[in-house]
Design a protein around this nucleic acid. Structure first.
Lengths: 355, 355
DNA sequence: CGATTCACTTAACGTTGCTTAACACCCAAC
DNA sequence: GTTGGGTGTTAAGCAACGTTAAGTGAATCG
């Protein structure tokens, strides 16, 4: 009797994975593999299935096609960070919180310490809390459990800075490849030949991309960076100290250290100073995040500056878009970076800019 | 619609959960799950049921079972910080988040920028979100609107570092008076006579207490700090720069600056360096938070070190106590601080030397 | 020509999301 | 007091869905 009301308000179009499979002439399992970025599917089939799935508006576990969600959002989003000590992350957090507050959203802040299990659990917890969306700056390349959990619950998410290898989704970051390449080029222009690189964990796509660009750019200048001089460490000062200890204790210590992160660079410099080395006279160091305090006159680090506020706001913009109108068309946004020339590379403070 | 509405306005409507269920085309059990925030209901169905229930004016306070509110916690706490850029606050946040996670709590992080209205609004928002408790590191001396809101709603809170002047409540902090006194004494021991103090906003009890201790300790050594040399500024680097600009542009610039916060101290040093002054040869500077990066060899700030982790865990402990067994017996916990001697005061640490 | 790899299917499995049904509770009527 | 209808809660059950280990068959390779 009241069915009229019910049917008028809710109408499930029900695009199941099986439907997509039928439309593509494959088995549901294949569709599942494609949607989760698993291996074992040919590129052609993969592309075909993605195309059909988008056309049909497929979402996993499709009990419902469209959200009628403006009225009753919880107005809460989750923010997953590797930690909240590194100022790179707090910078994003600050700006995300400001941006969300403008729209009346509250923010759950969670940290993972870059542990895969913690990440998976945190995502599950946030999902259980009915957040409207999640911004993740702690994605891991291989372990996509967290993102899968969110996908299944149809909770929109946006990856910030790091992405997952095989899972689709919105992404906001900088062009790590170009930025790292420019940074290395600047070091090369100083004439340093003995160069080491220290980056964050390789399970971060951002770290990995930077290392690869460092090595490639150096190679293009005829400089090979040996295995012992390519260090991956934790994304904090201690990681930098440890790396510096290894590098500087070697028989042939490097003349310059190119880091993937400011915190690491600072750790490297701290250790070098404790050995009595002068920077940049004995050792040049450059970083990769552009934190305010490492750019300051006290430290004077040469580094890549990321547009923190722009990135944060863009990430929330994208998330809000996904929340209000979910789709399977994802965008990859690369924000513009710039090189900040300090004095740790060997440049003179007054003549900050180099040609 | 007409009939139902008419009757509804005249008589207590008596909208049962079953009616909502029928209107939504689901079973009463599902409505029950939604109304109690239990799991096992899809977000779409949940929203739909909430919407219909609101339209029909459904009141969950039917005559049955116990009120579900008392025994069931939401397992969410609020954390109110002045900002999330100053590493003092992020240090506490990091450790509070870790501590709460161990007990299955989630944390809403909110920032006030030290604006009284923002603080009041943030507290109201958190209260509306049914948090189980709040940790506040952004309390203001005079404006206790926020704390009063929480008290009225019977939401436990713990003040961290700063307290409100006239409102009772648990408090965790350090002995600002003793710490500031020791810091000033160390500066006096160097023999400096021309001393200025720069602290955070005086609406923070921590800042005010430190300034008073600075002045008192200096006075005990026969040194008067004039009004122009007692500066209160914003709790960030820019605040420090501004203060330094005022102090160093004066006819009689000070020989030493005693700061109430590391960030301020760093701002002071940055400005001094930009004027070509050497630290500590031309100007000695000491800080007051003990942030990891200002203690590092790169900066070498002499400062008060606060036991960040201990304070964070203690604050959550107290909060948890208030949540599980509310009482009116409040405790004031003072954690132990220590003085970290760097080189910005003029001391010569063995290892570190700067070009 | 058998072994291996690749691309996909089959089928068992674990989850999710909801229903049915049993339960605990309060208020009225007997 | 006892009983019965009405109400919200909760465990148990079940169907649908997506996931994934195991399996199949064709192409490739040594």
């Amino acid at each position: 009797m009241d069915n009229a009301t019910a049917e008028a308000t809710i109408r499930p179009p029900k695009v199941s994975a099986a439907a997509v499979a039928r439309a593509c002439g494959v088995s549901p399992a294949t569709v599942s593999y494609v949607m989760n970025g698993k291996a074992g599917v040919s590129p052609e089939t993969r592309r075909h299935i993605i195309k059909i799935a988008n056309e049909l508006g497929f979402r996993p576990h499709g009990h419902s096609g469209q959200h009628s969600l403006d009225p009753q959002l919880n107005r809460v989003i989750g923010l997953i960070l590797p930690n909240i000590v590194n100022q790179m992350y707090t910078g994003w957090a600050e700006n995300i919180i400001s941006a969300t507050a403008r729209d009346g959203f509250e923010v759950f802040v969670a940290t993972t310490q870059d542990d895969p299990d913690t990440l998976a659990q945190v995502a599950a917890t946030l999902a259980a809390r009915q957040v409207d969306g999640v911004i993740i700056a702690a994605a891991l390349r291989e372990d996509s459990r967290a993102l899968r959990t969110l996908r299944q619950r149809r909770i929109p998410y946006v990856c910030l800075s790091r992405r997952a290898d095989h899972l689709p989704g919105d992404f906001v970051g900088i062009d790590d490849d170009t930025a790292a390449s420019q940074l290395m080029q600047h070091v090369l222009d100083h004439g340093y030949r003995e160069i080491a690189t220290v980056i964050g964990p390789r399970f971060s796509t951002a770290s990995l991309a930077r290392e690869q660009a460092f090595v490639r750019t150096a190679a293009a200048a005829g400089i090979t960076i040996s295995g012992e001089r390519k260090i991956s460490t934790r994304l904090n000062r201690d990681g930098g100290r440890l790396a510096a200890h290894k590098l500087l204790a070697a028989a042939d210590p490097p003349r310059a250290v190119v880091c993937g992160s400011d915190e690491i660079a600072i750790g490297v410099m701290e250790h070098a100073l404790s050995l009595g080395l002068r920077i940049p006279e004995d050792l040049a160091v450059v970083g990769g995040d552009g934190l305010p305090h490492s750019r300051s006159a006290l430290v004077g680090l040469t580094t890549i500056v990321q547009p923190v506020q722009e990135m944060a706001e863009k990430a929330f913009d994208l998330l809000l878009g996904q929340i209000t109108s979910p789709s399977n068309n994802f965008t990859q946004t690369l924000c513009g970076h710039r090189l900040h020339i300090g004095r740790t590379c060997g440049c003179q403070p007054a003549a900050a800019r180099r040609p």
